[in-house]
Design a protein around this nucleic acid. Structure first.
Length: 744
RNA sequence: GCCCGGGUGGCGGAACUGGUAGACGCAGCGGACUUAAAAUCCGCCGAUCGCAAGGUCGUGCCGGUUCGAUUCCGGCUCCGGGCACCA
């Protein structure tokens, strides 16, 4: 395995991004690209769009001014057109971790439900809601709409209190995490709808936690059977009406908490006694017959917003004519190159005030204005791996070589990419497939999600609540007797810094640690070995270099044993295969089996290394008094070198030559276990009495169940615990364990 | 708030399909070698009772299933990741 640097590419190079501009125009032709308004965080002082990360406690990170929600036109990719395929394909992706597949399933969030139209009581129109629980329809006691919903906007014109709430909502973040955790606020709009079954009037409220972007931006509220509706009803003294009881007859109290499980309908007239499925169908049929509802599949997944109002990036290849009509750039005029001779003035993209970029002509020669938004960088990272297969292609985005290499055999990345990057990349690949560019359905056959490498953060509070982060190398940490950090100071000024939580290493938190210092001190092999030994790759890890010394010692010991071995020739006494030598050879071959499995199947490099360490410890205690012993040690050292080669390639390459091999280690064959060497005459069995370990006995490998029982019961300590007690049964797990179950 | 992980000695971790909890390593303690130090080698190293043999407790907390639970189930708690403009 090696890096083929001839395929190296940079996604900021026009030779690369011209193809995603081209592909974007292809998707536009197919209707998979559209322009629509979307809400952004707007800094009213800097007059710029902010990322969620740049909003600190509701204020812009530079200006400190309260951020506003603002709707602007932006470009979207229709990933929802692929929602079903992205979801269903997951069932066949058996080399992906379950956790990632579960996260993607939940992110796509397909649900079957009913879209119900409630008539406004004053006859002025209707209110549409989507629900996955039509069985609870008769438990609906009020309606709730998003602040951006037309009914809320209309009510604001009549009611200053509603207007004020809507104004407050305009200042809330676009981040879902913040919206979900903020104080739940709401007001009655002073209007009602008619319940489609009972005809009862239900008040319509506006609530700041109803999302305009999900479903219809309105919900029917069933406080008895939805916890959030319950909390809102409690707070605003709205009625709670139970319409479902547990199927198992257990007692619940919906005045205390919502009962959200499926159950049997009550208080629902003719639908009483039906279970979830029957009630869903019966109520859906009734409303559909009356034209008041439609069955619908709803997704949580939203279309991919690819517009960014930033300078650094790939320009979106679109022109607007004098009427503002969209005209995609023609293929022969691509790429639209991002100008690098720019004039920075203020915080906004310089493209917006750059006539040479803005003023363009349409392919037919008419004057036009150029789009100044650039692509989300996830766009670049969604297909670079496919471009690696034919990075030198100047005539096509990808060519036939892509089908030789793709899909990627194993893709390795951090778990933090479980949904966004990995879902965008899957979508992009399918879109490329449907454009005839690749044949495979999925980009990544096997996925290994690395755990994150985490590290303590250090900071001082800065202006506007924006933290000033310090790198661990700039900080002196004071530890207590147990090795816990109690305080920290910046080396530069010797003043205290705050010790923050342990978080994934990132530029924004400045908590990355460069391994170069360790490499300079111990060499690359030791650092590689240590990194592999610290934890399995899929596990998160708090970086600490305190244990690296042990790996250094291990490699020194290996070096010494090999050099000692080759410096001494074999003893004259030929000797024979003693029991001890047989046991050692068995250990050598058991280690081959273990390490091969750990590296190729389990991806547990830490236990592979531990097994090699045990073998080397065993070899170091050998007494080399015969030629046979010398030969076994040669076999053992050869094996250790071969097994470690992928992890510490430099040292092992030298030792391999030292051990007398003329071939190069990098082309040497992986060792295979000798089945004969693996055989055992005796095995150890644990003897338990009532599940507690009382002895470990040695039994012949060929012993049957009765023989194992007899040997187990003959043990002195086992006898102490079974004598005088009624023996109920004996469980024998062949080759492993005997459990004697006795009475008290 | 929602979704996904995780919590095991002083520390990193092991126990792969319900079958010996703590492999391997770090740190620590004791010893050998040395004028001394480094390096190296040997021994100890979860808590507790016991002279010992051995016993009891112990895998975040509470409860359950099982002959047997770090592993399975229910409920909590704390930590990490993601929540669509950090990438």
């Amino acid at each position: 395995f090696a890096y083929d640097w001839s395929r190296e590419l940079a996604t900021c190079n026009p030779d690369y991004y011209r193809w995603e501009q081209w592909f974007f125009t292809q998707l536009y032709e197919k209707g998979l690209v559209y322009r629509a308004t979307a809400v952004v965080n707007w800094d009213p002082v800097d007059q710029t769009v902010l990322a969620n990360e740049q909003v600190i406690e509701g204020c812009g990170w530079r200006s400190g001014a309260p951020v506003e929600r603002r709707e602007i036109p932006q470009w979207f990719l229709r990933i929802t057109a692929y929602a079903d395929e992205l979801l269903e394909e997951l069932d066949r992706m058996d080399e992906w971790p379950e956790a990632v597949k579960t996260m993607q399933r939940n992110w796509i969030g397909r649900s079957q439900g009913l879209q119900i139209r409630f008539a406004l009581s004053d006859g002025s129109g209707q209110l549409e809601v989507f629900t996955t629980r039509p069985d609870t329809l008769l438990g609906a006691t009020y309606m709730a709409v998003a602040p951006e919903h037309p009914l809320a906007v209309a009510a604001a014109a009549r009611d200053p209190a509603v207007a004020e709430l809507l104004e407050a909502c305009k200042r809330q973040s676009t981040s879902e995490a913040i919206m979900e955790t903020m104080e739940k606020r709401g007001l009655s709009l002073g209007i009602t709808v008619d319940h489609p079954l009972s005809g009862a009037p239900l008040p319509v409220w506006v609530a700041n936690f109803v999302l305009i972007s999900y479903g219809t931006g309105a919900v029917m509220s069933v406080p008895a059977h939805d916890q959030r509706d319950y909390e809102f009803a409690q707070r605003h003294a709205l009625p709670i009406r139970q319409v479902v009881r547990p199927a198992d007859g257990s007692v619940i109290d919906v005045e205390r908490e919502a009962y959200t499980e499926h159950g049997i309908l009550i208080n629902s007239g003719e639908f009483d006694g039906l279970d979830f499925e029957l009630a869903f169908d019966a109520i859906a049929q009734r409303l559909e017959a009356q034209g008041r509802a439609t069955r619908r599949t709803q997704y949580r997944l939203r279309d991919w917003l690819v517009s960014r109002q930033r300078y650094w990036g790939c320009p979106i290849p679109v022109l607007y004519d004098e009427n503002g009509t969209v005209v995609p750039e023609s293929a022969e005029r691509l790429p639209v190159v991002l100008p690098e001779e720019i004039n920075w003035a203020g915080v906004n993209s310089p493209l917006r005030s750059m006539p040479a970029f803005l003023q363009a002509t349409l392919p037919d020669g008419r004057p036009a204005r150029r789009e100044t938004d650039t692509f989300d960088t996830f766009f670049e990272s969604s297909w670079y791996f496919t471009r690696f297969t034919c990075a030198d292609s100047t005539t096509a985005m990808v060519d036939a070589r892509a089908d030789y290499w793709m899909p990627v055999d194993i893709y390795i990345g951090g778990i933090e990419h479980a949904v966004l990057h990995l879902l965008y990349a899957r979508f992009f690949h399918k879109a490329m497939r449907d454009a005839g560019l690749v044949k495979s359905d999925e980009p990544f056959k096997r996925l290994l999600t690395q755990g994150m490498v985490c590290k303590e953060t250090y900071f001082r509070a800065g202006v506007n609540g924006r933290k000033q982060y310090f790198n661990p190398e700039q900080v002196e940490v004071v530890l207590d007797a147990k090795g816990r950090a109690v305080s920290a100071r910046a080396k530069a000024d010797n003043l205290p810094v705050i010790i923050g939580p342990v978080e994934k290493m990132s530029k924004s938190k400045n908590n990355g640690v460069d391994p170069q210092t360790l490499i300079a001190r111990y060499g690359a092999d030791t650092v590689r070995l240590y990194t592999m030994f610290a934890a399995p790759p899929d596990q998160s890890l708090e970086w600490s270099d305190s244990a690296v010394e042990g790996q250094y010692r291990f490699l020194k010991s290996l070096w010494r044993q090999v050099t000692d071995h080759v410096a001494n020739s074999a003893p004259a006494d030929p000797g024979g295969m003693s029991e001890a030598l047989k046991a050692l050879r068995r250990h050598i071959h058991e280690t081959i089996v273990k390490v091969s499995d750990d590296i190729s199947r389990r991806y547990k490099f830490n236990t592979a290394i531990a097994a090699v360490m045990e073998l080397l410890n065993h070899l170091s205690r050998m007494n080399i008094d015969t030629a046979a012993a010398h030969a076994v040690r040669q076999e053992g050292l050869d094996t250790v070198v071969l097994l470690l080669a992928p992890i510490v390639p430099h040292i092992t390459a030298v030792l391999w030559q030292a051990l007398g091999h003329s071939d190069d280690l990098s082309v040497a064959a992986w060792p295979t276990a000798d089945a004969l060497a693996l055989t055992r005459d005796e095995v150890e069995m644990v003897v338990q009495v009532n599940g507690r370990k009382r002895a470990v006995v040695s039994v012949p490998a060929s012993a049957d169940k009765a023989a194992c029982e007899a040997i187990a019961l003959a043990d002195e300590n086992v006898q102490r615990f079974v004598t005088g007690k009624a023996m109920h049964k004996i469980i024998v797990v062949p080759g492993k364990l005997v459990n004697v179950v006795v009475g008290e």
